[in-house]
């Protein structure tokens, strides 16, 4: 059996290149960023913009806060057997002035984290189905080898 190449667990939210980026959009009228991408109407109450450009969001940021998931989340989460807790962080992107949530990379524990820590975006496996890896964005402390 040949291994199928990995695909995104959620289509259109991030690039699969190296290094990866979250795909946001930017209103061509007022300049506001959106993630997930917004393509048909601007949510700024003073802007009626309807045209957007896709933008790669900053792939580094600082931890705003963090926690972990000790209990197995319900579906549509696809849990490994046995279940393995993972850390989660909310990360501030400076240029976009936006906070984006995500899992921390595998093996990172709450004790490794602190508010203000610099992290970067990586892709890791969220789960596998039909012999195919489904990839998701995660945050990883800067300078840590993947």
């Amino acid at each position: 059996m040949t291994a199928k190449s990995p695909v995104a667990a959620i289509d259109g939210w991030y690039t699969l290149d190296d290094p990866p980026h979250l795909i946001g959009s930017r209103c061509l009228t007022c300049g506001t960023y959106f993630f997930p991408r917004q393509a048909s109407f601007c949510r700024n109450p003073d802007c009626e913009g309807e045209t957007f450009e896709d933008v790669k969001l900053s792939r580094t940021g600082k931890i705003w806060s963090y926690t972990n998931a000790c209990y197995q989340p319900p579906p549509p989460f696809v849990a490994p057997v046995p279940y393995l807790p993972f850390a989660i962080a909310a990360v501030e992107l400076a240029a976009e002035r936006m906070i984006v949530l995500g899992q921390m990379s595998a093996g990172i524990e709450v004790g490794d984290l602190r508010v203000g820590m610099e992290v970067e975006l990586v892709l890791e496996r969220l789960y596998a189905a039909d012999g195919q890896e489904k990839l998701i964005w995660k945050w990883q402390p800067m300078g840590r080898a993947p």
């Binding site: 806060s65 926690t67 989340p73 989460f77 989660i88």
Partner: peptide, 19 residues
């Protein structure tokens, strides 16, 4: 999307608490 990546309601509560 958030449940798909494992972010439940207590995740948010804990982010506020840690903050």
């Amino acid at each position: 999307v958030r449940f798909h990546i494992g972010i439940t309601n207590p995740t948010y509560f804990a982010l506020y608490a840690r903050r």
